Amino acid sequence: MKPRILIINPNSSEEMTGAIHRNAAAFAGEDMEVVTVPTPGTSPFIATYEDHAMAAPGMVRLLRENEAGFDAFIIACHGDPNIDLMKEITVKPVVGIAEASMKMATMLGHSFSVIAPVERTVPNKKALVDKYGLSRDMASVRPAIIEQGADEAERLIAAGRRAVEEDMAEVLVLGCAGFAGLDKRMEKELGVPVLDGVICALIIASGLVKYGVSISKKRRYDNTFGKR
């Protein structure tokens, strides 16, 4: 049977949820079934740690209500909000798009850069890179600077070009689920691999399901501690 994967968008935006789903479904094809849902009762855009906290109850509810019906879960925000909590409360694979894309980037080149949506999120991205033990592999975090008259793709390409030419990045990671569908255009323009986090997470999540492995509950993610 093909893996059934629930993609949880931690924000409440129906528009972004639709864009994420279209991108994911196009990649999944007939190999896996994907369902994408927004998180109720939270912000339409996840940018702060307060947003992470506000999203937690809705994300937990979505996972628990759907655990029996899906083989794996994806957290579709490049801040990987509440990823440890989500890994702790289920025995099934949970994959964050930031962790998936940045770790895959280390397999494709000597160093990678993350293209952040706004300058405000640059230190948050660097903190996440540190958390995942990837600081040695990171060339930079480059914000997509808003330029008058430039569309989103042009802003991302400009930031990516600076990362490749000035920071010596060999791989680029798109630092927002809302950048769905821009990876291949950027690859063609810049001549380096460009990774969409949702696609990377689908590759990993479906692979874990097919391999029959999931999150260790030995210590860190053992949610029965103190309840026995």
Results as ranks from 00 to 15, higher is better:
1 M>A: 12
5 I>W: 05
6 L>Q: 03
6 L>D: 07
9 N>W: 02
9 N>P: 02
14 E>N: 00
15 E>C: 02
23 N>I: 03
24 A>W: 05
25 A>S: 15
29 G>K: 02
31 D>I: 01
33 E>I: 08
35 V>Y: 01
37 V>E: 04
39 T>L: 01
41 G>F: 08
43 S>M: 00
44 P>Y: 02
46 I>A: 07
46 I>R: 12
48 T>I: 12
53 A>D: 15
54 M>K: 15
55 A>Y: 08
57 P>I: 09
62 L>D: 05
66 N>G: 06
67 E>P: 09
73 F>W: 11
75 I>S: 13
78 H>Q: 14
80 D>I: 00
82 N>G: 05
82 N>Q: 15
82 N>T: 10
83 I>N: 07
90 T>S: 11
91 V>P: 00
92 K>P: 11
93 P>C: 11
94 V>I: 12
95 V>S: 01
99 E>K: 08
100 A>I: 12
103 K>T: 13
103 K>H: 02
109 G>V: 02
112 F>V: 11
112 F>S: 05
114 V>F: 06
115 I>F: 12
117 P>L: 06
117 P>K: 01
119 E>V: 04
119 E>T: 12
120 R>C: 03
121 T>R: 05
124 N>A: 13
130 D>T: 14
132 Y>H: 15
133 G>E: 07
133 G>T: 10
133 G>A: 06
134 L>V: 13
136 R>Y: 14
138 M>P: 08
139 A>I: 05
141 V>K: 02
142 R>G: 11
145 I>M: 02
145 I>Y: 02
146 I>P: 07
151 D>S: 07
152 E>P: 00
152 E>M: 11
153 A>F: 10
159 A>V: 10
164 V>T: 08
167 D>S: 12
169 A>K: 14
172 L>Q: 11
173 V>K: 10
174 L>Q: 01
175 G>A: 00
175 G>Q: 00
180 A>R: 00
181 G>N: 02
181 G>L: 01
184 K>V: 13
185 R>L: 14
190 L>R: 12
198 V>E: 14
200 C>Y: 07
207 G>D: 10
208 L>R: 13
210 K>E: 13
212 G>N: 11
217 K>N: 05
218 K>D: 09
222 D>F: 07
226 G>K: 08
228 R>W: 14
